[in-house]
Write a protein that binds this DNA or RNA. Sequence first.
DNA 1: GACATGGTTCGAACATGATCGAACCATCAG
DNA 2: CTGATGGTTCGATCATGTTCGAACCATGTC
Lengths: 88, 88
Amino acid sequence: MLTEVLFALSDPARLEIVRQVAGGTLDMANCHLLNPSAPKSTKSHHMKVLREAGLLRNQPAGRGRLLTLREEDLEARFPGLLRVVLKG
Amino acid sequence: MLTEVLFALSDPARLEIVRQVAGGTLDMANCHLLNPSAPKSTKSHHMKVLREAGLLRNQPAGRGRLLTLREEDLEARFPGLLRVVLKG
DNA sequence: GACATGGTTCGAACATGATCGAACCATCAG
DNA sequence: CTGATGGTTCGATCATGTTCGAACCATGTC
């Protein structure tokens, strides 16, 4: 659902996450929220929204988690979207 | 603010409005909500969100209102965005 | 096994947005 | 002026999303 993706991206904190992950794969511990003092449950919540919208993949790795942007899938479903929001 | 635009578009009812207006300028009376039985106050609310996000222009015309998509402004600020969401 | 680290999940509190009816305002028709 | 049409605004209600702490789970370290 396009609206679901747009909603996920419409939160500044989540958009920032996507921008950080866009630089390549990133382990979650090195992915920082806009509000640095936010508890991890908040961070986890935003990750869930992004994951369920189909924006991020979140695979366990060691004792942490690896974040990857689902670029190909997104490009297939909504061509150009990622480029636009990353640039904007 | 990009996030504000994305949020405005993240509602199915509003996205549909944008798609209808994209076909050219449209007077509001001929712009139909997804839910046809919704009261006009609801319609007015969605229009306000779209207007304040900078997506639509809403000028009085006769006893009604004329809706126009702010294509040039949007293209200048967020190039490609409109094309992506209209296609998606 | 014991402990620290990194995340998830749950429930509660709070904030924000959607929806609706009612009242109101403007424009046009008679 | 009167009435009808098309929209806005307001306030209340309800639904949804955010935030947070606490409990919990998994992995790695000692």
